[in-house]
Design a protein around this nucleic acid. Structure first.
Lengths: 190, 190
DNA sequence: CGGAAGTGGAACACATCTGTTCCACACCGG
DNA sequence: CCGGTGTGGAACAGATGTGTTCCACTTCCG
């Protein structure tokens, strides 16, 4: 479903759609093989209703991917990546992305999503990370030995680690994020 | 199946069992939802034979977990963790674990395994990592701000990143490992 | 040769998930 | 009140994976 079609939905339908997508993130991040029935139940709607919005499982996955992409780009927007040094900007991006919570787990664990939609080619935020690292290389604020793609991978897996750390160990989200940022900063320092 | 029971197997049965376990790692690391038929085919045996060795899917998963645990502890053994400084020992451990390849992806992506068997309580290598970091804290070779559990999480996700990086980007395994080690060293330095 | 070990394939019943259809119900604005 | 919108449940057929049984085949060793 395109955003143009979505814009024509009534408020009620938009709310229901939102509830299903949110429930899907929660449920699928715990168990990527969860059935549509489980997702519908978590969303508080009937399985029939879910099928009304997403005729097939793949349709749900597709829209989930688009939705995630949107949220990530919004986070990148909020991080004001052009401001300050590259490491500072990456730190802010990390903070914003961390707020995505369960969505991180889903994106990270299930390559299904990152393959569909606009994910295959570089997304806006992915490109932004690459450019940030390259600019950091030029002005000497980022370790020149680290390729941009590695830093990108690193950032995502640190986020994953941090969220996992916050979930399993007895630490607050703030502490986990703090460790994540500290580790990222030290890793990329020249 | 206990190792005592396994010891009684004939050489033929041991080979077949090994082939199935290896194929399971390869196939499941790519797609954790792969059917038993897929695994049997990859192992070059009939589905009937697979069921003869692992009556239920859960039995295969259980043995897969035990096998992984064994390999990890072997890797820790080879790394001689008592030798040299804590960061050096962690680096060597990282190198050994990296050789596990696809198994890394499987362990990391599917919490199924890490929950069963002896995984729930600290494994030998997990405990070793914790102790290494603590000793590094005492002699000032490891950043005192980083809890042992975080370093442990970090090590695993760096390994995951490195293997992924080697698979998707156009870099050799050696280069990926090199980046992994460099990043680990910088991260944990005091 | 003859039997044991190991194997593969066919067929089966069973469970689960999926996608669909149909119908009844609740809500709300005109 | 009435008709549109949104919904949930029941029921269905189809697909897929699972676990089992049975039988024929090969290999190898005594």
């Amino acid at each position: 479903m395109s955003s143009a079609e979505r814009a024509l939905e009534t408020a009620t339908r938009a709310r229901t759609r939102r509830a299903i997508l949110d429930a899907a993130v929660t449920v699928l991040s715990q168990d990527p093989t969860a059935s549509l029935g489980d997702i519908a139940a978590a969303a508080g709607v009937g399985r029939t209703t879910l099928h009304r919005y997403f005729p097939e499982r793949s349709a749900l996955q597709h829209d989930l991917g688009s939705d995630a992409l949107e949220r990530i780009d919004d986070a990148a927007e909020r991080a004001h990546l052009a401001r300050g040094s590259a490491p500072e900007a990456l730190g802010r991006l990390c903070q914003e992305l961390f707020e995505l919570g369960d969505l991180l787990m889903l994106i990270f664990s299930d390559p299904q999503f990152t393959q569909s939609a606009a994910w295959t080619e570089y997304t806006a935020s992915d490109r932004a990370i690459i450019e940030l690292v390259e600019s950091g290389h030029r002005d000497g604020t980022v370790d020149p030995e680290l390729p941009p793609e590695w830093v990108q991978n690193l950032l995502w897996s640190l986020l994953y680690s941090a969220w996992q750390h916050a979930s399993t160990e007895h630490v607050t989200k703030h502490q986990a994020l703090s460790l994540c940022l500290r580790t990222l900063r030290k890793s990329i320092a020249a």
